[in-house]
Amino acid sequence: MELFKNFKDFKMDVLKEVGNIGAGNAATALSQLLGKPIDMAVPKVQLLNFEEITEKVGGAEELVYAVFLRVEGDAPGNLFFILTPEAAVNLLSRVAGIELSGGEELSEMELSALNEIGNILAGSYLSSLADFTSLTMYPTVPALAMDMAGAILGYGLLQFGQMGDDALLIDTTFLEGQNEIEGQFFLIPDPESFPKIFKSLGVPFDND
């Protein structure tokens, strides 16, 4: 892809740091919600093609819960908070202290709580990014979906679809205790956002 072929390791490192700061804040917010420490894996920044991105969450057919927010402002993009069904149940029973109805599917109330947790996390992720880069970034009202990972993430890749077959992914994983809550943040900035992000961080964006 034209846009990324000249990305040097240095620029990948900058993006990794951007992801790190956002996720660090979100981990703190989650930790406060849960009242227990939350670990965070060092974020991965990767240039992946569409197939590889869905592989990251276990394959295109894998069932996931996803909170999706469209990021608007100076550096638009798509933000996903993705949980496996088990992680979603764990998160709800801990955070909201909800006695789960126990059915195969989550109830309306439980879904709404999950959406709100995603909203809080994504909000803290974004606001730290915005502080760090001095760019305005604000989330749209979150939308929650439970479906095949491919169908959900495919949606986040539309802006990239116009430009090529790859997307840049900033991917962070949260861990609580023994892997009990494993959630992933996917930040997929729109292609035109990269020059702005680099510029705001003082990194020259001149195709070298």
């Binding site: 869905t54 295109a60 095949m148 169908a151 495919g154």
Partner: peptide, 22 residues
């Protein structure tokens, strides 16, 4: 058949997974 991909065949199955807005 992957995302943004196409293929043809004469036996077995042709499959694509995870169609959302696609």
């Amino acid at each position: 058949v992957g995302m943004a991909d196409l293929n043809v065949g004469s036996q077995g199955l042709i499959r694509t997974t995870g169609l959302g807005s696609c």
